[in-house]
Design a protein around this nucleic acid. Sequence first.
RNA 1: CGGGGCGUAGCUCAGCCAGGUAGAGCACCUGCUUUGGGAGCAGGAAGCCGGCGGUUCGAAUCCGUCCGCCCCGACCA
Length: 441
Amino acid sequence: MRLSRFFLPILRDAPADAQIVSHRYMLRAGMVRQASAGIYSWLPLGLLVLKKIEQIVREEQDRAGAVEMLMPTIQSADLWRESGRYQDYGKEMLRIQDRHKREMLYGPTNEELITDIFRYSIQSYRDLPMNLYHIQWKFRDEIRPRFGVMRGREFYMKDAYSFALGYAAAVHAYNQMFVSYLRTFARMGLQAIPLRAETGPIGGNLSHEFIILAETGESAVYCHKDLLDLDISTTSVDYDGDLQSVVDYWTDLYAAADEKHDPDTCPVAPEDLVEAKGIEVGHIFYFGSKYSEPMGAVVSGPDGKEVPVEMGSYGIGVSRLVGGIIEASHDDDGIVWPEAVAPFDVGLINLKASDEACAVACESLYGKLLAAGRSCLYDDKDDSAGTKFARMDLIGLPWQLIVGPRRLRTGMVELKNRKTGERVEISPESALSRLIDQQIG
RNA sequence: CGGGGCGUAGCUCAGCCAGGUAGAGCACCUGCUUUGGGAGCAGGAAGCCGGCGGUUCGAAUCCGUCCGCCCCGACCA
């Protein structure tokens, strides 16, 4: 993408509304624009990141055996009356009427809808287990939306729903999601910590939330320091095999949210205890027959008798992750995208657009990067060098390929790593081979 | 929903206390000079001062009301 043809409304000053760093950088980098309280338009740069995250989530869900589908944003109130949640959910649910005065709602979650689909289609235990997910916009009319996309009212979420016969199978489905969440967040360059959690309005009796550590996180977290060093990528995972050992490995070490942590009874020695701030990016629930029973989602078991299916639901806040990753990865100059979620792999800077040699060199590099399958934002604008550097640092692409007349006279360009700040003077050919041949992103 | 605050140009803000016909920086447009860390000079365009009502000869400024937004708290992917 040529910057001259892209839509990247950079702000030099952050709007006064934005308080936390991710919100400020998202606005300054032209990723989002607020439409109203807690509701955002996703501008091109933000959408690219949102899609990258979405795709990683999708791939890991698929890998874990979940099957993608798509449910609507608008739901009928009738289903929610069946489960009893039409009353329970309260004002957080946005209720609307259609022209026939039918009561509708903008879905805050989809347990009812998926249970309805399931009961209509599945009658036999032979079709179980099953895990269906979708990635769709949700709306929760938060009392106080804040922190940009971190706590919007409208948000993009992956939600999966598992159906199983019996407790053991249901827990296996739960464990599958548990492990896939660890993998999902690890791929985004995040260290996620699973915390035993309350089940809240979703219901049930087994639940974990996944939080990532960031200084600006909303809640305090206490955990054993070794938990921060666990790495799921070194564990080979067989989703059909026994996952309990993996789950145990990740839950044996102490980890507790602020409200559950008691310094007096904490089993971890003070020198091993880490206190940090966290952002919740995922939450999984096992809730048995809470919905299947009232809604009549039953299957015939091996003995021919009907039993309600055991369910779980599993959410990842996709749009929240965009902000969460920035919270976890930025510096004073701007965002520092992990390569896996960066909107472009490479930022190509032409320091002097009016210089013929620079333009020719940049065009060549740009073409070769694209031909090799690398995404590249080519800054071909006629701005001063300082402006270009500051802008590219702000939007945080992992690699900057800098072409200026001074170095080009000796046939060299410069390659800068956004994260480390390391710059090397290098030939264009070497730069290309480093960007293309090496596994980046 | 309780408490606090703010709405003036795309963004950051001044002006309001003490009423007199709209300001700055950045961004934008034109020209020239610049080009390795947010360039310089000159010129230009841009605002029903959140809406409505009131007081007044006169309201961005004072009063009332509504709307929007932000922050703190209780709730949440």
